[in-house]
């Protein structure tokens, strides 16, 4: 952290706030991962880290390098796009795998999800 003496104060404060927000939300997400009781509750916890957590740290990084090099440093956008696109895919796969395994083992409390009936159209007919 040398050579930062002419780094503007407003940017330093903004970068710090974004960093603390992002890492704090990531930490809260993983605390939820420890705290929640069942797997299906735990699926919700890491999304805190991958949406606002990663977003805060990445925007902080973009801002820091843009001010430091006094040109727009946008390559962190790639990681942002990549993380936001891939996380839902992996969590969806995990959720499907979990419910498949729970059904195979005949665990209690798993909802029935019959595939035979047509959907009960009531108010939904107008929605399409």
């Amino acid at each position: 952290m040398t050579g930062l003496d002419d780094f503007p104060l407003w940017a330093a404060i903004l970068v710090s706030l974004l960093l603390l927000l992002g890492s704090g939300l990531t930490l809260l997400g993983t605390i939820g991962l420890v705290q929640f009781k069942s797997f299906y509750e735990r699926v919700h916890a890491p999304t805190l880290g991958t949406t606002c957590g990663a977003g805060g740290v990445l925007i902080a990084s973009i801002l820091f390098f843009s001010v430091l090099q006094s040109r727009l440093a946008l390559h962190e956008v790639l990681i942002t796009v990549f993380v936001t696109v891939t996380t839902p895919v992996t969590l969806m796969l995990l959720g499907r795998a979990a419910i498949y395994r729970d059904r195979i083992e005949g665990k209690d409390g798993m909802p029935e999800f019959d595939s035979g009936e047509p959907p009960s159209d009531g108010s939904s007919a107008a929605g399409g």
């Binding site: 930062l4 330093a12 404060i13 710090s16 960093l19």
Partner: peptide, 11 residues
């Protein structure tokens, strides 16, 4: 000043 703020928040 700003270097101190950044150092603390990054740590």
């Amino acid at each position: 000043m700003s270097a101190t703020i950044l150092l603390w928040s990054v740590t």
